[in-house]
């Protein structure tokens, strides 16, 4: 991997649980993120997948400095941004921007589209001088595929897909190098999702952006990502290139997750093997000892309760496509995604 633009080491976020009103004492902590490390190279897309409560959104918030980590470091071009404040922090923030999930609540209903997209320039006036802002906003509207004449309209006059384009335009306003997108298409209709995914990919090429793309839709993550990290209860269970994760998963959770995704091919009903996990995700306030997945894992043994598995290339297969970091004592390859379905309409182009 090339020199990473963003490097995360041992990131931890614990939210304290307190008791008492006058004399608050901490009785525990919700371990939302519990030791996450990854790197992001320039121009690369890292997909983060996992179920609700796995900490993926908390990671996103820490990357853009909306949350302060309890421990760990986030280095942007070699500089630890968790230690920064004031002017230096402001400068870094310009370069890491976020696109939010819900285009209905993340845009201020009382502001015009022009004000929403132009607001970043109020905070960072050095990017665009005052007289130039309107033109810049119209350019941005054009870039994300909206009519530049809509600059004086309000968010409610747009559909969900169009609103997400506005959110993306706002994220691009400061010409950032990294965009953290937290479930950017999951609130959109199916027929509109593909439009927004295409837009994000086109913008990446045009502006040389690096993406951290967080989603629970595994097929979209595979389409857009160069590398994928699978999270479970605040930790990364497995990480690798998209092919390594999807075709050669070695962590039981990844295998269960992939096998549970409904495949849009009725013919695959019989062909595929499904791993149905029992039970629910444990509470991050009281995670299981050792491997956090052991309470739902069919491979769990005594060792899993005693010893936290490290995220490392399993010793059993040091080379080949299965050789990628997996946090399991008993990592073993198992292909769960059935071969690609015959695609409708392929014959007739």
């Amino acid at each position: 991997m090339a020199e990473p633009i963003l490097e995360v080491r041992g990131l931890v976020k614990h939210y304290p649980l307190t008791q008492g009103i006058l004399f608050r004492k901490q009785i525990g902590a919700v371990k939302a993120v519990d030791g996450v490390s990854f790197g992001l190279a320039a121009g690369e897309t890292l997909g983060i997948v996992g179920e609700s409560g796995c900490g993926k959104s908390t990671v996103a918030k820490m990357l853009v400095n909306l949350e302060r980590p309890t421990a760990g470091a986030i280095s942007y071009k070699g500089q630890d941004i968790t230690k920064l404040s004031g002017r230096a922090l402001k400068a870094v923030r310009r370069n890491i921007q976020m696109v939010f999930q819900d285009p209905y609540t993340s845009l201020n209903p009382r502001m015009t589209v022009g004000d929403i997209i132009g607001e970043p320039y109020e905070i960072h006036p050095e990017v665009a001088p005052k007289g130039d802002r309107r033109r810049r906003v119209q350019e941005l509207l054009d870039v994300v595929g909206l009519n530049p004449e809509y600059i004086n309209r309000y968010p409610h006059q747009f559909s969900g897909g169009q609103r997400q384009r506005i959110g993306i335009a706002r994220g691009l306003a400061l010409r950032p190098e990294v965009i953290v997108a937290d479930e950017p298409v999951s609130a959109l209709d199916v027929s509109v999702q593909a439009q927004v995914v295409n837009l994000l990919e086109r913008l990446q090429g045009e502006f040389g952006l690096s993406y951290v793309f967080i989603a629970h839709d595994l097929s979209i993550v595979r389409h857009i990502s160069d590398r994928v990290a699978v999270m479970y209860l605040g930790r990364i269970a497995e990480t690798g290139t998209d092919t390594q994760i999807y075709d050669h998963p070695t962590h039981p959770y990844t295998q269960a997750l992939l096998s549970a995704v409904p495949v849009p091919d009725p013919g695959a009903r019989e062909r595929r093997e499904r791993i149905i996990l029992t039970g629910d995700v444990p509470s991050p306030a009281n995670p299981p000892s050792g491997c956090t997945f052991r309470t739902r894992c069919w491979k769990a043994e005594a060792r899993c309760a005693a010893e936290v598995p490290l995220l490392a290339v399993p010793q059993a297969f040091p080379s080949g496509p299965a050789a990628h970091p997996s946090a399991c004592h008993f990592a073993a390859e198992k292909r769960v995604v059935p071969p690609a379905p015959p695609t409708p309409g392929d014959a007739d182009g």
Partner: peptide
Amino acid sequence: YAAPAHPYTRGLLDSIPRLDQKGQDLYAI
């Protein structure tokens, strides 16, 4: 799924990301 008989259904099926489309645009209605 084998052969949709309406262009809308076809559009929906075509917009599902497929392996061989990696790095290309998705079909979008």
